[in-house]
Design a protein around this nucleic acid. Structure first.
Length: 555
DNA sequence: CAAGGCCGCGCC
DNA sequence: CGGCGCGGCCTTG
């Protein structure tokens, strides 16, 4: 391999070019923030030469030289994010490939390492040394070794991509979903705007939680976060020997001590997980939060969010938190898909009754409640409707009577009866569950609506449940990704920004000027229906829309 | 003493 | 009963 440093780039028109950057001055956990300076750009379009550029003007020249090429990266989202900071005019939507996303498309659930190092080991049996990477944190100029290291990454990214394509073809794998869902999603997540929080109000709120936790904790006299201490205290106070100290377990008990423990824990967790530290770490000087979005975060194909995770901000337990997320452009539009997973279950199972529930625009949880309890008089406000939610949800998780009985705090026999009644009403669900389990056993994988393959490890505990859950959860992820892709395209066509500020699995949050509310509503709805028509043509999809000043302003 | 396993829990 | 990310406790070497 020849390394060309700061030479004039060749003609890359029409090529497949592996692209990789190195950055100076970045810190762990903050790689996704607009921090650090560009150290170098490496390009590789054949296995013989790598072109390394270390000066801003030669990097610009190199970026210009690849405008009519397809870019290949390993986690190219990272490279594009930083290159766009310095050369916004040269990093607009462009043909790309990604060896990490492709590897996940091919083998998610089969392997568990998806770093370039892992791929190079798998495909070529070569060990890549990554220790030199740490030097970039404090360096300001590249040494010979660093240039060599940087060149290696582009070289191996290039070779890996073609090896993956070869392997995929050999196994007769369909890459349509990778190209139509995961790859365009890179542009979707690059497009997610920072979201504003009310820092002062957040701190005041946490002050209150902290004071409450301290007061209650002092009265209890032991550490509620310590399993041994909680078990000992409960034993002493009630004589009960606890198997675990989980929320569900304690909630099922009656007695003052259980309520007190849960109360302290709630506020303790609030302060430690979403408290002063969260503000300090994640709220930038401008009052905005910038999360790291991961296109394929879960084995099912779901996205993930970290540093901070914006998908698990309390909403039910302490609704005050979502009030601290505030509009910065006028108002939020919050849209979520109603009963997303049950709709996908209807598509997967093709159960006539279940399909009819949605075709007739009926309330799924109410219908399930009436079936499970064999009582047609149940109405919307009946508590049994809420229990039925656990049955609907549980189906997609592979629930058993044991799990359901714990959730509903009833006997196993009773839970079994509810399930029997449920499957009697929706017989094809049970058939589908059996067929998924057999398929996972026979083929080693199940698939989602986009053709995404979820490998089910035969050695993993609970694999039968994964076989059922993966198509539902993964199919829901496919849907949301496609929805956002189509929505972005419609916004682009309309000449307006996509305004996307957060994605929470089946919910989108948009931050936009008040007068744009109607147009965004219309574009969200038309892209939603287009995504549904493509992936789930036989099930009607319905979304609920809200507008307001904060994320808590949801119907 | 740091590292890592485990538990517990927030969201969907 | 499925999927994540993350903080704290507690054991390990």
């Amino acid at each position: 391999m020849r390394i060309h440093v700061n030479e004039s780039p060749p003609n890359f028109d029409g090529s497949m070019v592996a692209l990789d950057i190195e950055m100076f001055g970045q810190k762990e956990g903050r790689l996704h923030l607009p921090e650090g300076t560009l150290a170098s750009l490496q390009l590789c379009a054949d296995a013989g030469d790598v072109w390394v550029f270390t000066e801003m003007d030669t990097i610009r020249e190199a970026m210009e030289s690849i405008q009519r090429a397809c870019w290949i990266g390993h986690n190219i989202q990272y490279d594009l994010f930083h290159l766009r900071r310095f050369f916004p005019d040269l990093v607009t939507e462009h043909p790309i490939e990604d060896t990490m996303l492709l590897e996940k498309w091919l083998y998610n659930g089969y392997y568990d390492g998806f770093a370039l190092k892992d791929l190079v080991r798998r495909y070529f049996g070569v060990h890549l040394d990554k220790e030199i990477r740490d030097e970039f944190e404090t360096a300001t100029e590249m040494t010979k070794e660093q240039i060599r290291y940087a060149a290696d990454d582009a070289y191996w990214t290039f070779r890996t991509f073609f090896e993956q394509v070869r392997a995929g073809a050999e196994e007769d794998r369909d890459l349509t979903g990778y190209h139509e869902i995961d790859i365009p999603s890179v542009w979707s997540v690059l497009d997610i705007q920072p979201i504003k929080v009310n820092k002062e109000s957040w701190i005041t709120m946490v002050d209150g939680f902290d004071a409450r936790a301290k007061e209650l904790e002092a009265a209890l006299g032991f550490n509620v976060k310590s399993v041994p201490q909680v078990k000992a205290a409960v034993l002493k106070a009630t004589g009960i020997v606890l198997e675990n100290t989980q929320k569900d377990t304690l909630e099922a008990m009656s007695g003052e001590i259980f309520e007190q423990i849960l109360e302290v824990r709630k506020y303790r967790d609030a302060v430690s997980k979403y408290g002063y530290n969260w503000i300090e770490e994640h709220v930038d000087a401008d009052g905005f939060v910038r999360s790291n979005w991961i296109v394929t975060g879960a084995e099912t194909g779901r996205m993930a969010s970290r540093d901070p995770n914006l998908e698990n901000i309390p909403s039910k337990v302490l609704p005050e938190y979502r009030e601290q997320f505030i509009q910065s452009k006028g108002c939020f539009t919050i849209v979520d898909i109603s009963a997303q997973e049950p709709r996908i279950l209807a598509h997967e199972t093709q159960d006539k009754e279940l399909l009819n529930v949605f075709k007739n625009k009926e309330d799924i949880h109410l219908i399930v409640a009436r079936a499970a309890y064999k009582d047609d008089t149940i109405q919307k406000d009946d508590p049994r409707r809420k229990s039925a939610k656990s049955i609907s949800l549980g189906t997609t998780y592979g629930l058993t009577s044991v799990g359901l009985s714990k959730k509903l705090n009833c006997s196993e026999d009773q839970a079994q009866e509810f399930l029997d009644n449920y499957f009697q009403k929706f017989p094809d669900i049970r058939l589908w569950i059996d067929s998924q389990r057999r398929k996972a056993q026979r083929d080693g994988y199940v698939t989602t609506a986009s053709g995404r393959r979820c490998w089910i490890s035969p050695y993993k505990f609970g694999r039968e449940n994964n076989a059922i859950n993966a198509p539902c959860q993964g199919g829901a992820a496919d849907f949301t990704k496609l929805w956002v892709i189509l929505f972005r395209a419609e916004c682009k066509f309309a000449g307006i920004p996509s305004a996307l500020a957060n994605i929470i699995h089946d919910e989108l949050v948009l931050d936009h000027p008040v007068e744009m509310q109607e147009i965004y509503h219309n574009l969200l709805e038309s892209s939603l229906q287009a995504a549904a028509a493509k992936l789930y043509p036989d099930v009607p999809f319905v979304a609920e829309y809200s507008c307001g000043e904060t994320w808590a302003d949801k119907k």
